[in-house]
């Protein structure tokens, strides 16, 4: 992934009253990096569902924390949720017919369906620092073009400044620096 800024992080208590703070964080990061409203909403609801599952099933309403790491690139956005609760890989939940499920009258369990509908990939890993749930969404073409234009404009500006200062040899190096910051 072509990242162009350092990932943003937040740590919140694993309680349902943290959900507004999590959504606010995603909205803030999304707006800062010019994601579309649709992209922000898709991530907000998916992360809300994932965090609700961690709170209810991972920590089983016991105390703990959830760490969120967000990185946004030209092609995709990734949010990692890290927790130290009971491990649960959402990919193990089989693909069911959502309508059959809804009509069955079961009260919960729709969160994973929502995540699958709104996201492109859900990866799960149990590591020494905790469970890592990685949620990926490919960015919309319009947003990607907008970002690429923004990046090209920034880079050209930077490049012409380098030419002006006769530091051509450092250009590639600084260009990579731009990609990462």
């Amino acid at each position: 992934m072509k990242s162009f800024f350092i990932p943003k992080k937040i740590v919140v208590p694993a309680t349902a009253d943290s959900l507004p703070r999590i959504r606010e964080f995603i909205t803030k990061v999304g707006k800062r990096y010019r994601l579309s409203k649709h992209e922000i909403n898709a991530f907000k609801i998916s992360i809300d569902e994932a965090c609700t599952n961690i709170i209810k099933h991972g920590y089983q309403d016991n105390s703990g924390n959830i760490k969120l790491r967000v990185s946004i690139g030209v092609d995709q956005m990734i949010v990692e949720l890290i927790d130290q609760g009971k491990s649960f890989d959402p990919n193990l939940v089989c693909e069911a017919n959502v309508q059959d499920y809804v009509s069955s009258g079961k009260k919960g369990g729709l969160g994973i369906f929502i995540m699958r509908k709104f996201l492109d990939a859900i990866d799960y890993e149990v590591t020494s620092i905790g469970n890592i749930l990685r949620l990926t969404k490919q960015r919309q073409q319009v947003a990607r073009n907008r970002d690429q234009q923004h990046f090209s404009a920034t880079f050209k500006k930077f490049k012409s400044r380098l030419f002006f200062n006769n530091y051509n040899s450092q250009m590639i190096c600084c260009g990579e620096f731009l990609l990462l910051t």
Partner: peptide
């Protein structure tokens, strides 16, 4: 302004 599956679950719990 916003609904998650927990909100949808409320209706599912009562409808029958």
């Amino acid at each position: 302004a916003y609904i998650s599956s927990a909100g949808l679950g409320v209706f599912m719990g009562f409808i029958e």
